[in-house]
């Protein structure tokens, strides 16, 4: 759907595509998250009206699931896999080094809105452990030393947020 349709109409289109069934709430939120990389408050208000659901229930769902974020995400999304397989291959040291170099805590977005660093429990590429995703692209067999190189890749990676 084109980017320029104003947000309220866009949300209505998404809700309508699910016939405003209240059970499709999570899917609707996922499409809004996909579109705007976060869930704007006005969108939740709109969904509450259109799907006749209490705003408190929607807010509960929006804050429960890790796939949703109420704050806008950074231009680049860096996901460090902290699944067990990667953990035993010391993904913890890579995560801590990324936090140091990118000056952003896990689960947060950098103040300059450039980078969002998040942890994910297993992306299913355990052979490559420890693995880091930058805007959806996998980087495997990492050691703490290579984190510096990784930070460069993040800086000049052209693609905007898509994951």
């Amino acid at each position: 759907m084109s980017q320029n349709t104003p947000m309220p109409e866009r949300v209505d289109q998404i809700v309508a595509s699910y016939q405003a069934r209240s059970t499709a709430l999570i899917m609707v939120l996922q499409e809004v998250q996909q579109e705007y990389s976060y869930l704007p408050p006005e969108a939740l208000q709109r969904i509450s009206e259109r799907m006749d659901l209490a705003l408190s229930q929607i807010y509960g769902v929006a804050t429960f699931y890790k796939a949703f974020s109420l704050e806008p995400r950074g231009k680049h999304l860096v996901s460090v896999c902290t699944g067990t397989a990667c953990h035993v291959r010391n993904s913890q040291s890579i995560l801590e080094r990324l936090e140091r170099d990118l000056h952003v805590e896990r689960g947060q977005t950098s103040t300059d809105r450039e980078v969002t660093l998040e942890t994910v429990n297993c992306v299913g590429a355990c052979a490559l452990g420890p693995v880091v995703l930058i805007d959806g692209k996998h980087y495997g067999h990492l050691t703490v030393g290579e984190v510096e190189k990784l930070v460069e890749v993040i800086r000049q990676c052209p693609c905007s947020v898509q994951h």
Binding site: T23, Y65, K66, A67, F68
Partner: peptide, 25 residues
Amino acid sequence: VSRGGGAFVCGESTALMASLEGKVG
């Protein structure tokens, strides 16, 4: 097909069903 919202607890059957119903898992 219903995509989960990123919650490990939804692997538990009743939480999965709650999530399918569009509610908190």
